[in-house]
Design a binder for these strands. Structure first.
Lengths: 170, 170
DNA sequence: AGTATATGTCAGTGTTGTTGACATTCCAAG
DNA sequence: CTTGGAATGTCAACAACACTGACATATACT
Protein backbone atom coordinates (compact mmCIF):
# COMPACT_ATOMS: atom_id res chain seq x y z
CA UNK A 1 0.00 0.00 0.00
CA UNK A 2 1.88 3.06 -1.20
CA UNK A 3 -0.70 5.31 0.35
CA UNK A 4 -0.39 5.43 4.07
CA UNK A 5 -3.11 7.99 4.52
CA UNK A 6 -6.19 7.08 2.61
CA UNK A 7 -8.42 9.14 4.85
CA UNK A 8 -7.84 12.75 4.07
CA UNK A 9 -8.67 15.49 6.49
CA UNK A 10 -11.98 17.08 5.71
CA UNK A 11 -13.73 20.18 6.89
CA UNK A 12 -10.73 21.33 8.89
CA UNK A 13 -10.87 18.51 11.43
CA UNK A 14 -7.71 16.79 12.47
CA UNK A 15 -8.26 13.22 11.44
CA UNK A 16 -4.69 12.06 11.73
CA UNK A 17 -5.79 9.35 14.12
CA UNK A 18 -7.70 7.72 11.27
CA UNK A 19 -4.77 7.12 8.94
CA UNK A 20 -4.24 3.60 7.67
CA UNK A 21 -1.06 3.45 9.71
CA UNK A 22 -2.90 4.34 12.90
CA UNK A 23 -5.58 1.79 12.14
CA UNK A 24 -2.99 -0.88 11.50
CA UNK A 25 -1.36 -0.14 14.81
CA UNK A 26 -4.74 -0.43 16.48
CA UNK A 27 -5.27 -3.81 14.83
CA UNK A 28 -1.92 -5.10 15.97
CA UNK A 29 -2.45 -3.73 19.45
CA UNK A 30 -5.71 -5.69 19.65
CA UNK A 31 -3.96 -8.84 18.49
CA UNK A 32 -1.10 -8.68 20.97
CA UNK A 33 -3.22 -7.42 23.85
CA UNK A 34 -5.76 -10.20 23.48
CA UNK A 35 -2.96 -12.70 23.82
CA UNK A 36 -1.99 -11.16 27.12
CA UNK A 37 -5.62 -10.94 28.10
CA UNK A 38 -6.11 -14.70 27.85
CA UNK A 39 -2.61 -15.79 28.89
CA UNK A 40 -3.14 -16.11 32.63
CA UNK A 41 -6.40 -18.08 32.58
CA UNK A 42 -5.00 -20.26 29.80
CA UNK A 43 -2.07 -21.22 31.99
CA UNK A 44 -4.36 -22.19 34.85
CA UNK A 45 -6.72 -24.11 32.60
CA UNK A 46 -4.04 -26.11 30.84
CA UNK A 47 -3.26 -27.77 34.17
CA UNK A 48 -6.88 -28.83 34.50
CA UNK A 49 -7.64 -30.35 31.10
CA UNK A 50 -9.97 -27.45 30.43
CA UNK A 51 -9.76 -24.81 27.74
CA UNK A 52 -10.85 -21.30 26.99
CA UNK A 53 -14.35 -22.45 26.15
CA UNK A 54 -14.79 -23.78 29.67
CA UNK A 55 -13.60 -20.48 31.06
CA UNK A 56 -16.13 -18.54 29.03
CA UNK A 57 -18.99 -20.80 30.07
CA UNK A 58 -18.06 -20.63 33.73
CA UNK A 59 -17.66 -16.87 33.55
CA UNK A 60 -21.09 -16.18 32.14
CA UNK A 61 -22.88 -18.76 34.27
CA UNK A 62 -21.38 -17.07 37.29
CA UNK A 63 -22.40 -13.74 35.86
CA UNK A 64 -26.02 -14.73 35.31
CA UNK A 65 -26.86 -17.72 37.52
CA UNK A 66 -29.87 -19.70 36.34
CA UNK A 67 -29.37 -18.70 32.74
CA UNK A 68 -30.62 -21.14 30.13
CA UNK A 69 -28.51 -22.98 27.62
CA UNK A 70 -30.06 -20.98 24.82
CA UNK A 71 -29.28 -17.72 26.55
CA UNK A 72 -25.68 -18.74 27.04
CA UNK A 73 -25.54 -19.78 23.39
CA UNK A 74 -26.44 -16.31 22.23
CA UNK A 75 -23.91 -14.67 24.48
CA UNK A 76 -21.05 -16.97 23.54
CA UNK A 77 -21.86 -17.03 19.84
CA UNK A 78 -21.22 -20.73 19.29
CA UNK A 79 -23.46 -23.61 18.26
CA UNK A 80 -25.43 -25.42 20.90
CA UNK A 81 -23.57 -28.61 20.11
CA UNK A 82 -20.24 -26.97 20.78
CA UNK A 83 -21.41 -25.49 24.05
CA UNK A 84 -22.99 -28.76 25.06
CA UNK A 85 -19.73 -30.66 24.97
CA UNK A 86 -18.20 -28.10 27.31
CA UNK A 87 -21.19 -28.07 29.62
CA UNK A 88 -21.30 -31.85 29.78
CA UNK A 89 -17.74 -32.11 31.08
CA UNK A 90 -18.34 -29.31 33.55
CA UNK A 91 -21.46 -31.04 34.83
CA UNK A 92 -19.74 -34.43 35.00
CA UNK A 93 -16.91 -32.87 36.98
CA UNK A 94 -19.37 -31.30 39.38
CA UNK A 95 -18.61 -27.68 38.56
CA UNK A 96 -21.94 -26.84 36.98
CA UNK A 97 -25.45 -27.89 37.88
CA UNK A 98 -28.25 -28.14 35.32
CA UNK A 99 -31.81 -27.87 36.56
CA UNK A 100 -34.89 -28.56 34.47
CA UNK A 101 -37.01 -25.45 34.11
CA UNK A 102 -40.14 -25.22 36.22
CA UNK A 103 -42.37 -23.31 33.86
CA UNK A 104 -40.85 -24.72 30.68
CA UNK A 105 -39.41 -28.19 31.12
CA UNK A 106 -37.50 -27.96 27.87
CA UNK A 107 -35.19 -25.40 29.37
CA UNK A 108 -32.17 -26.17 31.54
CA UNK A 109 -31.10 -23.56 34.05
CA UNK A 110 -27.40 -23.47 34.80
CA UNK A 111 -25.69 -22.79 38.11
CA UNK A 112 -22.16 -23.06 39.45
CA UNK A 113 -21.57 -25.49 42.28
CA UNK A 114 -19.18 -24.51 45.07
CA UNK A 115 -16.32 -26.08 43.16
CA UNK A 116 -17.42 -24.21 40.06
CA UNK A 117 -17.44 -20.95 41.93
CA UNK A 118 -13.97 -21.70 43.26
CA UNK A 119 -12.64 -22.23 39.75
CA UNK A 120 -14.34 -19.11 38.47
CA UNK A 121 -12.83 -17.13 41.29
CA UNK A 122 -9.38 -18.47 40.54
CA UNK A 123 -9.65 -17.68 36.85
CA UNK A 124 -11.18 -14.26 37.18
CA UNK A 125 -8.73 -13.29 39.90
CA UNK A 126 -5.88 -13.92 37.50
CA UNK A 127 -7.53 -12.04 34.68
CA UNK A 128 -8.58 -9.16 36.88
CA UNK A 129 -5.07 -8.83 38.27
CA UNK A 130 -3.72 -8.17 34.81
CA UNK A 131 -6.59 -5.88 33.92
CA UNK A 132 -6.14 -3.98 37.15
CA UNK A 133 -2.47 -3.44 36.47
CA UNK A 134 -3.15 -2.28 32.94
CA UNK A 135 -5.91 0.06 34.11
CA UNK A 136 -3.77 1.45 36.90
CA UNK A 137 -0.81 2.07 34.62
CA UNK A 138 -3.00 3.71 32.00
CA UNK A 139 -5.13 5.89 34.26
CA UNK A 140 -8.86 6.57 34.39
CA UNK A 141 -9.11 8.67 31.25
CA UNK A 142 -7.34 6.08 29.17
CA UNK A 143 -9.64 3.43 30.62
CA UNK A 144 -12.68 5.43 29.60
CA UNK A 145 -11.32 5.72 26.07
CA UNK A 146 -10.47 2.03 26.00
CA UNK A 147 -14.03 1.10 26.80
CA UNK A 148 -15.50 3.60 24.39
CA UNK A 149 -13.51 2.19 21.49
CA UNK A 150 -14.21 -1.42 22.41
CA UNK A 151 -17.93 -0.78 22.56
CA UNK A 152 -17.83 0.88 19.17
CA UNK A 153 -16.00 -2.14 17.79
CA UNK A 154 -18.64 -4.69 18.78
CA UNK A 155 -21.28 -6.09 16.49
CA UNK A 156 -24.75 -4.77 17.08
CA UNK A 157 -26.06 -7.85 18.85
CA UNK A 158 -22.92 -8.19 20.91
CA UNK A 159 -23.11 -4.58 22.03
CA UNK A 160 -26.66 -5.26 23.08
CA UNK A 161 -25.68 -8.37 25.04
CA UNK A 162 -22.78 -6.48 26.58
CA UNK A 163 -24.75 -3.46 27.75
CA UNK A 164 -27.50 -5.68 29.06
CA UNK A 165 -24.99 -7.55 31.16
CA UNK A 166 -23.17 -4.39 32.13
CA UNK A 167 -26.28 -2.60 33.33
CA UNK A 168 -27.41 -5.62 35.31
CA UNK A 169 -24.23 -5.29 37.37
CA UNK A 170 -24.44 -4.63 41.07
CA UNK B 1 1.93 11.41 31.78
CA UNK B 2 -1.03 10.87 29.60
CA UNK B 3 -3.39 11.51 32.42
CA UNK B 4 -3.57 15.07 33.58
CA UNK B 5 -6.08 14.81 36.35
CA UNK B 6 -5.48 11.81 38.54
CA UNK B 7 -1.99 12.95 39.50
CA UNK B 8 -3.22 16.31 40.72
CA UNK B 9 -5.46 14.64 43.24
CA UNK B 10 -3.66 13.86 46.43
CA UNK B 11 -2.78 10.41 47.64
CA UNK B 12 -6.47 9.82 48.26
CA UNK B 13 -6.95 9.35 44.52
CA UNK B 14 -10.27 8.42 43.03
CA UNK B 15 -9.74 4.77 42.24
CA UNK B 16 -13.33 3.94 41.39
CA UNK B 17 -12.20 2.81 37.95
CA UNK B 18 -10.33 -0.05 39.60
CA UNK B 19 -13.27 -1.73 41.30
CA UNK B 20 -13.88 -5.38 40.57
CA UNK B 21 -17.06 -4.39 38.79
CA UNK B 22 -15.20 -2.03 36.49
CA UNK B 23 -12.56 -4.66 35.82
CA UNK B 24 -15.20 -7.23 35.01
CA UNK B 25 -16.80 -4.86 32.56
CA UNK B 26 -13.42 -4.31 30.96
CA UNK B 27 -12.95 -8.07 30.64
CA UNK B 28 -16.33 -8.54 29.01
CA UNK B 29 -15.74 -5.59 26.72
CA UNK B 30 -12.53 -7.23 25.53
CA UNK B 31 -14.35 -10.48 24.91
CA UNK B 32 -17.17 -9.02 22.87
CA UNK B 33 -15.01 -6.53 21.02
CA UNK B 34 -12.51 -9.16 19.93
CA UNK B 35 -15.36 -11.10 18.39
CA UNK B 36 -16.28 -8.07 16.32
CA UNK B 37 -12.65 -7.47 15.55
CA UNK B 38 -12.23 -10.85 13.85
CA UNK B 39 -15.73 -11.21 12.43
CA UNK B 40 -15.20 -9.55 9.03
CA UNK B 41 -11.97 -11.31 8.03
CA UNK B 42 -13.41 -14.60 9.29
CA UNK B 43 -16.35 -14.23 6.95
CA UNK B 44 -14.08 -13.62 3.98
CA UNK B 45 -11.75 -16.46 4.89
CA UNK B 46 -14.45 -19.05 5.37
CA UNK B 47 -15.28 -18.71 1.68
CA UNK B 48 -11.67 -19.48 0.80
CA UNK B 49 -10.92 -22.58 2.89
CA UNK B 50 -8.53 -20.49 4.93
CA UNK B 51 -8.71 -19.65 8.60
CA UNK B 52 -7.59 -17.07 11.09
CA UNK B 53 -4.14 -18.60 11.19
CA UNK B 54 -3.65 -17.84 7.50
CA UNK B 55 -4.80 -14.30 8.07
CA UNK B 56 -2.27 -13.72 10.80
CA UNK B 57 0.57 -15.13 8.72
CA UNK B 58 -0.36 -13.05 5.70
CA UNK B 59 -0.73 -9.94 7.80
CA UNK B 60 2.70 -10.10 9.35
CA UNK B 61 4.47 -11.18 6.18
CA UNK B 62 2.98 -8.14 4.51
CA UNK B 63 3.97 -6.05 7.48
CA UNK B 64 7.59 -7.17 7.43
CA UNK B 65 8.41 -8.55 3.97
CA UNK B 66 11.43 -10.83 3.91
CA UNK B 67 10.95 -11.88 7.51
CA UNK B 68 12.26 -15.30 8.42
CA UNK B 69 10.21 -18.25 9.57
CA UNK B 70 11.73 -18.05 13.02
CA UNK B 71 10.90 -14.37 13.30
CA UNK B 72 7.31 -15.01 12.33
CA UNK B 73 7.15 -17.83 14.84
CA UNK B 74 8.08 -15.50 17.67
CA UNK B 75 5.57 -12.86 16.62
CA UNK B 76 2.70 -15.29 16.21
CA UNK B 77 3.51 -17.29 19.31
CA UNK B 78 2.78 -20.70 17.82
CA UNK B 79 4.87 -23.78 17.19
CA UNK B 80 6.78 -24.23 13.95
CA UNK B 81 4.69 -27.27 13.14
CA UNK B 82 1.55 -25.24 13.39
CA UNK B 83 2.92 -22.36 11.36
CA UNK B 84 4.41 -24.72 8.82
CA UNK B 85 1.06 -26.26 8.01
CA UNK B 86 -0.30 -22.81 7.25
CA UNK B 87 2.74 -21.62 5.31
CA UNK B 88 2.80 -24.77 3.22
CA UNK B 89 -0.73 -24.25 1.96
CA UNK B 90 -0.10 -20.56 1.34
CA UNK B 91 3.04 -21.37 -0.67
CA UNK B 92 1.31 -24.17 -2.58
CA UNK B 93 -1.50 -21.79 -3.45
CA UNK B 94 0.94 -19.19 -4.70
CA UNK B 95 0.19 -16.53 -2.11
CA UNK B 96 3.53 -16.62 -0.32
CA UNK B 97 7.03 -17.00 -1.68
CA UNK B 98 9.88 -18.50 0.33
CA UNK B 99 13.41 -17.49 -0.65
CA UNK B 100 16.61 -18.99 0.67
CA UNK B 101 18.66 -16.42 2.62
CA UNK B 102 21.70 -14.90 0.95
CA UNK B 103 23.88 -14.40 3.98
CA UNK B 104 22.55 -17.39 5.89
CA UNK B 105 21.27 -20.08 3.58
CA UNK B 106 19.48 -21.88 6.41
CA UNK B 107 16.98 -19.08 6.67
CA UNK B 108 13.91 -18.74 4.50
CA UNK B 109 12.71 -15.24 3.80
CA UNK B 110 8.99 -14.87 3.26
CA UNK B 111 7.25 -12.58 0.80
CA UNK B 112 3.71 -12.13 -0.44
CA UNK B 113 3.13 -12.72 -4.13
CA UNK B 114 0.77 -10.45 -6.01
CA UNK B 115 -2.09 -12.78 -5.20
CA UNK B 116 -1.01 -12.79 -1.58
CA UNK B 117 -0.98 -9.04 -1.49
CA UNK B 118 -4.43 -8.98 -3.01
CA UNK B 119 -5.78 -11.25 -0.29
CA UNK B 120 -4.05 -9.25 2.43
CA UNK B 121 -5.56 -6.09 1.05
CA UNK B 122 -9.01 -7.59 1.01
CA UNK B 123 -8.75 -8.82 4.57
CA UNK B 124 -7.17 -5.74 6.04
CA UNK B 125 -9.60 -3.47 4.22
CA UNK B 126 -12.46 -5.20 5.99
CA UNK B 127 -10.77 -5.06 9.35
CA UNK B 128 -9.64 -1.46 8.93
CA UNK B 129 -13.14 -0.41 7.94
CA UNK B 130 -14.49 -1.61 11.25
CA UNK B 131 -11.58 -0.13 13.18
CA UNK B 132 -11.98 3.17 11.35
CA UNK B 133 -15.64 3.36 12.23
CA UNK B 134 -14.95 2.53 15.87
CA UNK B 135 -12.14 5.09 16.03
CA UNK B 136 -14.24 7.75 14.36
CA UNK B 137 -17.19 7.18 16.66
CA UNK B 138 -14.98 7.23 19.73
CA UNK B 139 -12.80 10.21 18.87
CA UNK B 140 -9.06 10.80 19.08
CA UNK B 141 -8.77 10.98 22.86
CA UNK B 142 -10.61 7.71 23.35
CA UNK B 143 -8.35 6.13 20.73
CA UNK B 144 -5.26 7.27 22.61
CA UNK B 145 -6.63 5.76 25.81
CA UNK B 146 -7.57 2.57 23.97
CA UNK B 147 -4.01 2.08 22.81
CA UNK B 148 -2.51 2.97 26.15
CA UNK B 149 -4.55 0.34 27.95
CA UNK B 150 -3.92 -2.32 25.30
CA UNK B 151 -0.17 -1.79 25.47
CA UNK B 152 -0.28 -2.08 29.25
CA UNK B 153 -2.17 -5.34 28.90
CA UNK B 154 0.41 -7.08 26.71
CA UNK B 155 3.03 -9.47 27.96
CA UNK B 156 6.55 -8.08 28.09
CA UNK B 157 7.80 -9.86 24.99
CA UNK B 158 4.67 -9.04 23.06
CA UNK B 159 4.90 -5.37 23.94
CA UNK B 160 8.44 -5.47 22.68
CA UNK B 161 7.42 -7.11 19.42
CA UNK B 162 4.56 -4.68 19.08
CA UNK B 163 6.57 -1.51 19.61
CA UNK B 164 9.31 -2.77 17.33
CA UNK B 165 6.76 -3.28 14.58
CA UNK B 166 5.00 -0.04 15.39
CA UNK B 167 8.11 2.08 15.26
CA UNK B 168 9.24 0.51 12.00
CA UNK B 169 6.03 1.79 10.42
CA UNK B 170 6.22 3.97 7.35
C1' DA C 1 35.22 -32.89 13.10
C1' DG C 2 31.73 -31.85 16.03
C1' DT C 3 28.14 -28.95 17.87
C1' DA C 4 24.55 -25.63 17.37
C1' DT C 5 20.99 -23.38 14.58
C1' DA C 6 17.14 -22.92 11.14
C1' DT C 7 13.85 -25.20 8.85
C1' DG C 8 10.79 -28.90 7.38
C1' DT C 9 8.17 -33.20 8.13
C1' DC C 10 5.60 -37.16 10.18
C1' DA C 11 2.72 -39.04 13.70
C1' DG C 12 -0.27 -38.56 17.50
C1' DT C 13 -3.35 -35.94 20.67
C1' DG C 14 -6.59 -32.34 22.58
C1' DT C 15 -9.72 -28.43 22.33
C1' DT C 16 -13.24 -26.32 19.96
C1' DG C 17 -15.67 -25.20 16.25
C1' DT C 18 -19.00 -27.23 12.57
C1' DT C 19 -23.31 -30.14 10.55
C1' DG C 20 -26.63 -33.80 10.80
C1' DA C 21 -29.82 -36.65 13.23
C1' DC C 22 -32.86 -37.22 16.96
C1' DA C 23 -35.48 -36.99 21.54
C1' DT C 24 -38.29 -34.22 24.47
C1' DT C 25 -41.41 -30.65 25.47
C1' DC C 26 -44.52 -26.91 24.51
C1' DC C 27 -48.13 -24.69 22.01
C1' DA C 28 -51.60 -23.85 18.84
C1' DA C 29 -54.72 -25.21 14.91
C1' DG C 30 -57.92 -28.33 13.59
C1' DC D 1 -57.96 -34.19 22.19
C1' DT D 2 -54.87 -34.94 18.70
C1' DT D 3 -51.53 -33.69 15.61
C1' DG D 4 -47.95 -31.02 13.63
C1' DG D 5 -44.63 -27.50 14.04
C1' DA D 6 -41.37 -24.88 16.86
C1' DA D 7 -38.18 -24.64 20.60
C1' DT D 8 -34.76 -26.83 23.43
C1' DG D 9 -31.28 -29.85 24.36
C1' DT D 10 -28.30 -34.22 23.45
C1' DC D 11 -25.40 -37.53 20.81
C1' DA D 12 -22.22 -38.65 16.93
C1' DA D 13 -19.04 -37.61 13.37
C1' DC D 14 -15.95 -34.48 11.22
C1' DA D 15 -12.68 -30.35 10.34
C1' DA D 16 -9.49 -26.69 11.78
C1' DC D 17 -5.73 -25.67 14.36
C1' DA D 18 -3.25 -25.68 18.26
C1' DC D 19 0.14 -28.87 20.92
C1' DT D 20 4.21 -32.43 21.87
C1' DG D 21 7.77 -35.50 20.40
C1' DA D 22 10.90 -37.45 17.22
C1' DC D 23 13.60 -37.04 13.38
C1' DA D 24 15.89 -35.33 8.80
C1' DT D 25 18.48 -31.90 6.28
C1' DA D 26 21.24 -28.12 5.35
C1' DT D 27 24.10 -24.68 7.01
C1' DA D 28 26.94 -22.09 10.30
C1' DC D 29 30.21 -21.70 13.87
C1' DT D 30 34.26 -23.12 16.70
Amino acid sequence: MADGRSTTAQSGENLLFLTDEQLRQGIEAMFFAYRGFTADPDRILSDLAYGRAHHRAVHFINRAPGTTVNNLLNILGVTKQSLNRVLRTLIEDGLVESKVGKVDKRERHLFLTEDGQALEQKLSDAQRARMRMAFRDAGPEAVAGFRTVLEAMMDREMRFAYTRLRDSGT
